[in-house]
Nucleic acid binder design. Structure first.
Lengths: 236, 236
DNA sequence: TGTATTTTATTTGTCGACAGAAATTATCCT
DNA sequence: AGGATAATTTCTGTCGACAAATAAAATACA
């Protein structure tokens, strides 16, 4: 059980400001991937000894996560991973569809040549995930694709909200997608290609229209999954 | 120089979790009111002795403010009040107009009777501010009015972005509004009344249309102020 | 045996202190 | 004297420890 730092005393072995970011990034991923499921209690001391650092940087990471709504903290007691509000999912869908439309429209209006390369690269990754029938990779690469489009739109306010929505969507989809059994993903690939084309053509109206139908397509897909699973869960 | 707590030792005199919130709220107000102007350096030690508490709760408040983009922090060095990006103001206007529209439309669709009472109360406060020709009160009460409409729309994602935009708008307007010299405010009062009417009538399309013209009205007003002042500032 | 009260235990919020990084000033060499 | 290097200062990031607040357990009481 000999540790690698057997010299005089404890070796931090890590740069000064990096601790918080590391904890923040890792916890964020674990929350979005449902490694830490909704409602899962978060213990500061436990995290402190897991990452081998003091509670102070842990707390800072938690405060930032709370600011994004990913964890909820009761005063003086227990902080836990935020629950997903299934009763008000329609507000999520409303916001998601609108941000799909707005960001795609703005990308058509404001994109630069180098943006298109990034977008096409993301689309290739998404297509690869579909080809491989890797559902989790589809979720991630689809989010990255639309995130790249949003960046090309260059509106930080929309980018911020949209990324947050895509994160929440990642969490929701993880709950339901285990495997793909239908041919819809290939349709998404084609629609993505169409979106790239109208963005490149700087056709804002067409971009809006395509993004709208694409988004509503996805929302319908999610709702169908929910309806299917709800029938099962009611039995519990 | 005798302080009020002259007894044995230091008297905290404040509840356990309240320190962070107090510092956060106060700093937030001071930033939005430009008491702390953009670029103003923030010193943790200075704040700690000002509020008579340790640096720990101060830092937590600062982390939360940084999460909202109100302060910017360079690693290991100086944290300061965020600057206003005047070069990209159009992104702010785009987002503001869209959120005006969406929140008003959703309010028309989803409001409940008690929401209308709150909205009317805010409108009364705005009208009073216009009557008193109090420009700063107009800014605050106008934001509160539209915030109440957003709440009635009941979409937390839109509410969050909209409130953030209204905050930023409060900061921008403080820079320019010293006094009112024209009759536009009265027009805003009338438009507010029209908006309340269509919300109460649950006419979503009309709400969208009114909100749009109202928002564009305000944006034009701000841009006019900017054009006027820019001519002066160029001389510097 | 069931309920109210006290005691214990666990976890958070706050504190003072120290060490690392960058900016500032002082010193030295050519 | 001018510029490079070294010392100082100043502020942030991290740490360990303590105290308050709440939950859980134990005890007393009817």
């Amino acid at each position: 059980m000999t540790n690698k730092d057997t010299d005089t005393n404890s070796a931090p072995e890590r740069k000064r400001g990096s601790g918080v970011k590391m904890v923040y990034d890792l916890l964020r991923d674990e929350i979005l991937d449902l490694v830490l499921p909704p409602g899962c209690p978060i213990d500061e001391v436990q995290l402190a000894e897991r990452f081998k650092m003091s509670r102070t940087p842990i707390r800072e990471a938690l405060v930032r996560l709370a600011g994004e709504g990913l964890i909820a903290t009761l005063p003086n007691r227990s902080t836990m991973v935020s629950n997903i509000d299934f009763l008000n999912l329609h507000t999520f869908f409303d916001a998601l569809v609108l941000m799909y439309r707005v960001t795609t429209r703005l990308a058509a209006e404001h994109h630069r040549p180098e943006d298109l390369e990034v977008i096409r690269a993301r689309q290739a990754e998404f297509a690869a995930a579909v080809q491989a029938q890797d559902a989790l990779a589809m979720i991630a690469t689809n989010a990255a694709f639309h995130s790249a489009i949003a960046e090309a739109g260059r509106n930080p306010y929309f980018i911020g909200l949209f990324k947050r929505l895509l994160d929440e969507g990642r969490r929701i989809l993880r709950l339901y997608y285990q495997s793909y059994d239908d041919r819809l993903p290939q349709r998404f690939v084609d629609e993505h290609e169409d979106m790239i084309a109208v963005i490149a053509a700087r056709d804002a109206e067409a971009a809006d229209r395509l993004a709208r139908t694409h988004a509503e397509q996805i929302v319908q897909q999610i709702q169908k999954l929910f309806a299917r699973n709800d029938r099962l869960e009611i039995a519990l």
